[in-house]
Design a protein around this nucleic acid. Structure first.
Lengths: 243, 243
DNA sequence: ACGCGGGAAAAGTATATACATGTATGTATA
DNA sequence: TATACATACATGTATATACTTTTCCCGCGT
């Protein structure tokens, strides 16, 4: 009867997933106020303490901001951590004082292959958005960005003009990332990649596979190919950070 | 009457302070078990839920480890996070069920080049340890590991037998890492690298540059070269992790 | 028009209670 | 002796309840 998902086992985790998913789907926006604890109690049929724990943990995780006597709000997007930042290539290029430009090669809605559907952890074969963008630094292509996006979380992905807004910025603004997976490898360029990046077949490329989750749902799957001789990924991390 | 400090205002924060203080003063040691929740209730005169919240938050902050049905223990020093783990190639290989073997090519004390001395942020040109090790997975070389180590932090680095103990394990045990810097790139193999890794010159390699700090001092500088076709780096990260 | 006071609403804390779940241990039985 | 069961104890979760603290807003009086 209740609107709670069937994902996590403890009840407060279900409430957390429920809230994160509804933030992801835009049910509550940045400006509006989330329901109060008592409204959640009425809507979900759980006790207030359980709702409170879910909200408290989401707050300490940085997703929400709560003001006593006022209400609960969605936290502004945070820089997350370490490896997540490396995806914002546009900001990096600009930060280096260079010019950034994008070229959108593909922006469509497709039926995923069986393998891709598996990566999305879909039960059924649901259509997903597919985009291919080349990012230039001073008119030199440095990155080929292929991305698959879950339309249940980001329904209007294909309405955007990604030659102006970076795909990264758009996604970060639309849905909170609760988990990230990265796989980094070095591969020789195939014919198509070489053409798009203006390099020779066989040249070294840095390949970054990336999956992001919002709650229990896979939000995006990306395949980022960097020209080895023109780009490297950097990160700096201090473990001495608190929750 | 109660042993609780007069520091923080909410009661559960006082309980947290109380527990942390007693860990700090050595009242409970690494091996012994902390009092049970009910024992805390009897000792401090607060409800079990309040004790539970204090213990839960200390656990999620990484100070404690709790086992249902067993008890509460002091957590071992932090396993750090994300990218740090990817350096322990020996553990990864073993975890995949494969055989790991190391070959030490160089283990010496050298005077660093001007550039290297700069990377160490040395004021004067101080001698550093230098090691080169090849790591094998089932007798196939997968990684070439060149490392420079600050002798003021790890004075007996050159006395070790790194064909037995992984350099990573040894360093992690000797000095705490407070900060890590990574730079990842894809490069073609040069002649010497190709020879050590049994690949062709020009083959794609994943190059990981790594610097670690202990406090304000650079502890290690590493250059890790992975065979692109035999290895990739993976990581998974949850901003809202529970542990 | 202005200010002030009071009440409603929201989050924060604390407790008592109950039950669930996992672990270790001792005892009875095959 | 070894296995199975019962039991005690530990943490984990869920609820109901009460009270506190803070903020917002509406209506009243001047």
């Amino acid at each position: 009867m209740s609107a709670l998902p069937d994902t996590a086992s403890p009840l407060y985790e279900k409430v957390k997933d429920y809230i994160l998913t509804n933030i992801g789907t835009g049910k509550w926006t940045k400006d509006s106020k989330l329901p109060s604890e008592n409204e959640f109690v009425a809507a979900l049929g759980v006790s207030r303490m359980t709702v409170h724990r879910a909200l408290r943990e989401l707050t300490s995780a940085g997703f929400l901001i709560r003001l006593q006597g006022v209400g609960t709000f969605i936290a502004p997007p945070k820089p997350q951590s370490t490896l997540i930042e490396i995806n914002n290539i546009a900001a990096e290029i600009v930060a280096r004082g260079n010019r950034h430009r994008s070229e959108v090669l593909v922006l469509e809605k497709i039926t995923p292959t069986k393998e891709l559907s598996l990566s999305f952890e879909f039960a059924k074969r649901t259509a997903v958005y597919h985009s291919v963008v080349v990012n230039f630094e001073n008119d030199l292509p440095v990155q080929l960005e292929e991305r698959f996006v879950n339309p249940s979380l980001i329904p209007d992905y294909d309405k955007q003009d990604f030659s102006k807004t970076a795909t990264y910025d758009y996604l970060m603004q639309k849905t909170p990332v609760t988990e990230v997976e990265h796989i980094i490898s070095a591969v020789p360029a195939d014919a198509e990649t070489a053409r798009h990046l203006a390099i020779n077949v066989g040249d070294c490329c840095l390949l970054l596979h990336r999956r992001t989750w919002t709650g229990a749902v896979v939000a995006t799957i990306s395949k980022l190919t960097y020209v080895g001789s023109r780009y490297s990924l950097g990160s700096r991390y201090s473990p001495s950070r608190k929750t």
